[in-house]
Structure formats: structure tokens, C-alpha cells
């Protein structure tokens, strides 16, 4: 690990001012310290933000506010989240290990880098790690990689389970910078790689995620987070699906569908949602929705299997969420 200066911040504005060139905020550290040990991130300064007062989980008139420094397990196990936003708890518990969830924060989860093996190996080319060096995955071993929204610069996927659920729940991100704050829809936080895959998200230098807000609960039941992975637990998704339904008799009144493991950002399935809304909740309709969701998918040499796995996962997630099996 490269030497760095360590700074402990006690208030948010001080943390933002302390952040300089080649410096990073340090929260749970589960991703950043790993990347520093690998020599992938080599900051001159770490600003430890774990003492900032951003650890609340509280009701607001419009929903729920979650401080950016809450740990993954604090949110997953919180009674209000379990009762009103069970999809979020399910997604959290599908990610990482109990120890890591006890360390990793909500804001840090949003900032975690891709697990693309070419990004993690400093001997190999990666446009995300070294812009302009090329994409090793494009012609390489790309089994874990994107089938939607990729570019010829980068075909990496975002590894966060939490972010898939937060996209489905239409969360909002609160950001503080030196010149004031701004609020973003969660779906606009992460970005597609395009020609600048080094940018995972739209956060500007010196900006700090301070909290998330969830709208009033709309999907307290009929939700499911399905994660398909190489082993039963503690692995990144090959494909994951967050499904949330409101059922009116046998009909779909409202629906949210978001896929993980398939793109550089949480991949919302709007065509599938539009198709299902107002229609009977039947497996046949779920299959048609999955078919529509897969339009435009593009596989590479080693991830062709995702073209079959993903639509099957969508149907299965909808079946489990709705309880409909025929």
C-alpha cells in the first residue's frame, strides 16, 4: 500500500474541505482498502468520514431518510426497512458476507468499483483503471460482463445488490459539495461507460453522499430479490432481479423491475414494466415481459448464457414476488 496522510473529519463541511487532489473519503473501507492493497487506487490522503453525523434511519413526511454512513447490516435489519421496504433488506442480505455488511456503508456501497478481473489486475489493460489503455475484457474472459449498455471502451458491470433495490424503490440521493447540495434520483447516480468508463457515477470531485431518501412505502409485499451466482452465498451476481408488484385482484396495478449483473449501472426494465401494468399477473405475461426486457441485449464470447439466464430469472422473480405459478 502506498503511504498516505490520514485525516479524521468531525463535520461534513470540514470533510469536504479537507478532500484534495488524489484523496479519497474513507468510510467502511471494504472496497477502498482492498483496492489500495492491490495498487489500483493510490491516494495521497484519506479523509476518514466515519465520525460524521450521517448515521440516522428516520421517518420523514415523504418516506424514510437513511444516513450515508449507516452500515449495510444496520439498514437491512432496521424494523422500518424490514416492514416497509423488505426488497431492500433482501438485496442487502444477498450481498457480501455478514462481516463485510457490518463494515460497508450505504454511501460506500454506491461508490464500489466493478469486480471486472481486468480492472483488478494492474498488469492488464483496462480503460476504467487507466483511460486509453484498452479493454481487456472485450476480447478476453468476459463471463461476468455486461449484456446491456456497454461500449467498446468498457463492458464491466456494477456489482452492487443494494443499488438494484434502491433503483426499483425510486430512492433519491442527497449530495453535499463545497458549493452547496444537490439531490438526484438514484437511477441517475450511476452511469453507462460510453467513452469515459473511468467515471462510474456522476459525483463531482469533492462531493460527498450524505443520505438517501425512500418514498412512502409502495411495495410492502409482493417483492423478491433473486440473485443467481456461482455458489449459494457470498459471490457476485451473474444476474440478479429486483421485482416489486402491487396486485389488484389478479391484475398488476404497479410494477418495478430492475436487473443487476448485466450493465454498468442498475438496469431498469421499463418495457417489461409498461407491458405488465394493468395486465393479469400470469406466467404467460411474465414471459412476454421478460422477452420485451431482453430486446437490445448483446452478449460476448463467454457470457452468451446470460441471454437465457436473464429472462428466466425475470420470470422466476415475478413468480416468487406475486405468488403466481401458472
Amino acid at each position: 500500500m502506498n503511504p498516505f496522510t490520514y485525516v479524521r473529519a468531525t463535520e461534513t463541511s470540514g470533510a469536504i474541505r479537507a478532500l484534495g487532489r488524489d484523496s479519497h473519503f474513507l468510510a467502511g473501507g471494504t472496497n477502498l482498502i482492498d483496492l489500495m492493497k492491490m495498487g489500483i487506487v493510490t491516494p495521497e490522503k484519506l479523509v476518514d468520514i466515519t465520525h460524521l453525523p450521517l448515521k440516522h434511519i428516520s421517518r420523514t413526511p415523504t418516506g424514510l431518510s437513511i444516513g450515508a454512513l449507516c452500515t449495510n447490516s444496520e439498514v437491512a435489519d432496521h424494523p422500518l426497512v424490514l416492514k416497509h421496504y423488505p426488497l431492500l433488506s433482501m438485496a442487502f442480505n444477498a450481498g457480501a458476507s455478514p462481516q463485510l455488511r457490518n463494515m460497508a456503508t450505504v454511501g460506500g456501497n454506491m461508490m464500489q468499483r466493478t469486480r471486472c478481473p481486468y480492472f483488478f489486475d494492474t498488469a492488464l489493460p483496462c480503460n476504467k483503471r487507466v483511460p486509453g489503455s484498452g479493454c481487456g475484457a472485450l476480447q478476453g474472459y468476459n463471463r461476468m460482463h455486461a449484456i446491456f449498455g456497454a461500449s467498446d471502451q468498457c463492458i464491466a458491470v456494477n456489482p452492487s445488490d443494494m443499488s438494484i433495490a434502491l433503483t426499483a424503490l425510486e430512492a433519491t440521493v442527497h449530495i453535499q459539495g463545497a458549493r452547496g447540495g444537490r439531490i438526484l434520483p438514484f437511477a441517475d447516480f450511476h452511469r453507462l461507460p460510453g467513452d469515459t468508463p473511468e467515471k462510474d457515477n456522476v459525483l463531482e470531485p469533492g462531493e460527498l453522499i450524505t443520505s438517501l431518501t425512500l418514498p412512502l412505502p409502495a411495495f410492502p409485499d409482493h417483492v423478491h430479490y433473486l440473485k443467481i451466482r456461482d455458489r449459494t452465498s457470498y459471490a457476485f451476481a451473474l444476474v440478479s432481479v429486483a421485482a416489486a408488484l402491487q396486485l389488484d385482484g389478479g391484475n398488476v396495478r404497479a410494477v418495478r423491475l430492475v436487473m443487476g449483473g448485466v450493465a454498468h449501472k442498475p438496469w431498469r426494465l421499463e418495457a417489461a414494466e409498461d407491458f405488465l401494468r394493468g395486465k393479469p399477473a400470469t406466467v404467460e405475461n411474465f414471459r412476454q415481459a421478460a422477452y420485451l426486457a431482453m430486446q437490445g441485449a448483446k452478449a460476448y464470447a463467454y457470457n452468451q448464457f446470460k441471454l437465457t439466464l436473464a429472462p428466466n430469472a425475470i420470470v422466476q422473480a415475478l413468480k416468487t414476488a406475486s405468488g403466481v405459478t401458472a
Binding site: Y6, R8, L26, G29, T30, I33, D34, L46, D48, T50, S97, P98, Q99, L100, N102, M103
Partner: peptide, 20 residues
């Protein structure tokens, strides 16, 4: 794995100084 304030964590990914 160790416990920090009673909670289990991976001590390899925690900087000592952040455990003040």
C-alpha cells in the same frame, strides 16, 4: 474476523487508526 464494539468485522480491511 474480530469483534469491534461487539460487532464482527474483517480486521484485514479496517485501518487501525480508524478504530480510535
Amino acid at each position: 474476523t474480530v469483534h469491534v464494539n461487539g460487532v464482527r468485522i474483517n480486521s484485514c480491511l479496517s485501518l487501525a487508526v480508524s478504530n480510535e
